[in-house]
Amino acid sequence: MPELKSGSRLKSAVCEGEVMVVSAPPADVEITCGGTAMFASGGEGVAAEIDPEQAVGIAIGKRYITEDESLEVLCVKAGQGSLAVDGALLLQKDTKKLPKTD
């Protein structure tokens, strides 16, 4: 299981999807994409089939959180798989739009 800490980058084993961990819970958790565990960027992953039940997809630039908000990731590459922790799908975080200042 790849170490989950703020800043680390994970790749999907079922699609092109990639995420960066924005904030991580203190206890180790496993993030899955399309039903299969994600692996650390730079590491080796075994390609797997996408679970059709977890194939809504992730969109680049969107942030995803667990229901208790203990884990937050940023999608840095879009993919077809959906993110989940312990079988529970992550939720897309609503971000507030701000006036442009620089």
Partner: peptide
């Protein structure tokens, strides 16, 4: 550090807006 600048951008800018 990278964490400061990235935190600033993520909290204030919507990607590809």
């Amino acid at each position: 550090r990278h964490k400061h600048l990235v935190a600033y951008i993520l909290s204030s800018v919507e990607f590809a807006c």
